[in-house]
Design a protein around this nucleic acid. Structure first.
Lengths: 246, 246
DNA sequence: ACGGTGCTTTGATACAGATCAAAATATCAA
DNA sequence: TTGATATTTTGATCTGTATCAAAGCACCGT
């Protein structure tokens, strides 16, 4: 488990390739994956899977952003997962989807037929190991979110969300000058509200407030600049050391 | 992964024995576990591990209840996990605890020295597999909780918590007569508040309200009777089919 | 029985965020 | 360019839950 280090190229067909590349894939495993793999594209707003649908595949996000959402009978919605490139979706062993999966931007996913993938997991222990690590990461993220949902103020929630998106997308494709950085906000106000347990009006107001206070900058409606990341993290109320990666 | 069925006796020393007994443990694996295993007891209120402490062990709850809690600098607290008998705690591969672990009742844990346990996971794939299943279950529970924290009303939150405790403890030690069942509430009002993202006053008020409306019964302060489980589930706002186990 | 120390309940009031409503702005097709 | 539609902002008001405060109860050691 210790020898999995993020690199960039080898093993590009591995379902678990992105966040940390698997250094142990054997040629024949890759062949097996090749056989059960296919790509699918979705447009922003399209639903990838409905809660309760039969799961024919598990998948990994290649480009774009998807969200996992739970809905109550009366329509209240809560996002419970945000899938960025490299994130995995689908639970091996589960027949039916537990959540709606929605493309919040244009989206490309790399899908693996579920049954053969499950088989592969059994014969290839290190895939299961890797999946365990990823699941534990997700669990940590979920628990961080629970703190946010249960105890943070609206302003702190917004700041936290911006910080998370900034950190995750900055790693991928962004110029970071000293403490400042820019990125494109990939979520509508409504999607943010669903993520944060707020209404879209409150999201809008708090973003305006952060803007007025100079914590963030907006060009147009979607392009965000964060002049000072530390200022944002202060607003987020996270315990000091930007623990994201611990 | 399909051949793990809940039974009751064999393999009683296996760290993953409880919720579903591992049918594949070999004799020598048990010997290895025996060597790295020890029991620890805690009194209600004691802290098992502080966030940031060095993790010397991973463990499984034998009896009693523990909680995982996150705390913000200014003292706001959010419980992010409730550990009942059979639940596992500790992340293999992580040096330092990410959360406070607190005994909310008297507690007995079966601990395994961390390093040797990690080693064992590498040499014994099916332990990793089992751990993956348990982690995925926890992730599902966490996401259910995110819906609760983000979108449910105070009354729905209380009803949901009672339903969860009822369902998890009923399985272990309770007489269930038709739809009615009783159990001992193992959490203080404050602990419930930390779990639900509420204040203890609100918890108290809502419990009183549920009592007045006949949804629950209290004898003393801790013994709860639920006359009709379906009524409680209605109050919880969960989507119809008590999906807990899906 | 006594007084202490924690829990829990109940009451009065305040406020953050929800809700309802409408205007402003962006997006896009023709 | 011009509507037509979707998204975002802003305003006015309402409400569920927090906050502050105090009283009620249960448990425990002496």
């Amino acid at each position: 488990m210790q020898d999995l280090k993020p690199t960039s190229q080898d093993c590009s067909d591995c379902p678990i390739r992105h966040r940390a590349v698997c250094a142990r894939c054997e040629q024949d495993e890759l062949k097996l994956l090749e056989e059960i793999k296919y790509y699918r594209s979705f447009e922003a707003g399209q639903t990838v899977i409905w809660q309760g649908d039969k799961m024919e595949f598990v998948a990994s996000v290649v480009t774009g952003i998807a969200s996992l959402t739970q809905t109550m009978e009366d329509g209240r919605r809560q996002m419970v997962g945000l899938l960025l490139p490299s994130d995995f979706v689908g639970r091996p062993g589960r027949e039916h989807a537990a959540y709606d999966v929605v493309a919040t931007t244009n989206l490309v996913m790399c899908c693996f037929r579920r049954r053969p993938f499950e088989q592969l997991m059994i014969t290839t222990p290190h895939i299961a190991e890797r999946l365990l690590q990823m699941t534990l990461d997700e669990l940590d993220a979920a628990r961080e979110w629970m703190l946010l949902l249960g105890r943070k103020t609206a302003r702190e929630k917004i700041a936290s969300l911006l910080a998370i998106i900034a950190q995750r997308t900055a790693a991928l494709d962004q110029a970071v000058t000293n403490n400042s950085l820019s990125f494109d906000l990939p979520l509508t106000r409504e999607a943010m509200a669903d993520y944060l347990g707020l209404t879209l009006e409150t999201v809008s107001r708090q973003i305006s407030a952060l803007k007025k206070d100079g914590v963030i900058h907006l060009e147009g409606k979607r392009a965000v600049t964060i002049p000072d990341m530390n200022m944002l993290l202060d607003e987020a109320g996270d315990d000091s050391d930007g623990g994201m990666l611990a």
